[in-house]
Design a protein around this nucleic acid. Sequence first.
DNA 1: CAATATTTTTAGGCTTGTCTAAAAATAAAT
DNA 2: ATTTATTTTTAGACAAGCCTAAAAATATTG
Lengths: 218, 218
Amino acid sequence: MFSLSEENYLKAIFHLERAFPAGVSTNALADEMNTKASSVTDMIKKLSEKKLVDYKKYQGVKLSEPGRETAVNVIRKHRLWEVFLVEKLGFAWDEVHEVAEQLEHIKSEKLIKELDRFLDFPKRDPHGDPIPDSKGNFINSNKVLLAELNKGESGICIGVKVSSPEFLQYLDKNKIALGQLIVILEKESFDQSMLINLNGKELKISNVISSNLYIKIS
Amino acid sequence: MFSLSEENYLKAIFHLERAFPAGVSTNALADEMNTKASSVTDMIKKLSEKKLVDYKKYQGVKLSEPGRETAVNVIRKHRLWEVFLVEKLGFAWDEVHEVAEQLEHIKSEKLIKELDRFLDFPKRDPHGDPIPDSKGNFINSNKVLLAELNKGESGICIGVKVSSPEFLQYLDKNKIALGQLIVILEKESFDQSMLINLNGKELKISNVISSNLYIKIS
DNA sequence: CAATATTTTTAGGCTTGTCTAAAAATAAAT
DNA sequence: ATTTATTTTTAGACAAGCCTAAAAATATTG
């Protein structure tokens, strides 16, 4: 078993690897973990000795296969708990992160297996992020950012890129929810802002918004 | 907020105070915490500085009012999670302790409030132990050990004194469950063993068993 | 009540995970 | 290509929580 801190580092490396597939830098990791570069170096050494990451001095880190498995398992637990909090306990989707950060470290195979069943094997968390299955496989849907679509195109809103309370509350306020059909009526070439159709209602959104909404193109 | 270790010490002191109301000894606490007396002394000093316990050297510890509140809150969380595990996730009553030991330390007022509501404000955990309310009040029922009753007396089984898997599985095997009416048909004066009536069926139980079952006398 | 046994505390050390400050390596820029 | 800037690592320190061994206080017992 791994410590809370080790699990958090593995999770952070997993997330950063998407942006830095060649290797995650010490500074990027320090930033993500809200800690200092020297602390990161210490921990990376430990993870490297445990064969959870591949590491060469000054070269950044990558997850090893066992490291990736551990990270994905933590992410699976995080997202299942988020579903629980929203679906069963009535939390809003911008309130779940902090609590799920704690719950994701509870150690019990049976707990997560039964929770998954209790929630009816959800495929996505409340933010639309995919929940890996017990073997660590993610569903891969052909999602794109709304900002990448053009006038006349459309798709189902399936996720958010950023989960800050501010952004999620903006979406709530404007009645933008996951599962909704979005049709692009106009796209302003100057600032990339869009006029979209949402359930019959029209809404003007900026490029900042459209760059943080994932759309499933059918 | 308090550390995991601090919460566990407070909880242990709370439980031991029932047996040692004059003050919990360092050794008793070391035993309960599976640690060494010197470690206990260290922690007691820290808790004492934080005004969570009253402590005088060589005199044992007692919880202060804030210490008791914290301990009771941890116990409340532990027992609510046990109800969740059994009622919602289908755990057996002898499987819940270890997981609840972890879950009890999750920090979120809202989480526990909503969990309580989700579980429909349960008054007892799966072992029959009372769940304190959000203000820290325990329901007090006039419970006695089955062993203290005599021939002809009867009552409802409401709890167990010991929660070891062996004992709980013995109860399951013999169909003894909480909420059940127990009538004492015979009591052997030599070894205190009893012949009881359980839902129409007769069962012979030893004094070891009857000394670990709580009965509510009506 | 003095001697012995037990309990509790102190002293010093270890590990985990963090920090600051300084040194070393790499990258950028003139 | 040599200087300058940035990134990364090392060195040494610290707090939390635990340990062992020894000292001090309290209890027990003849």
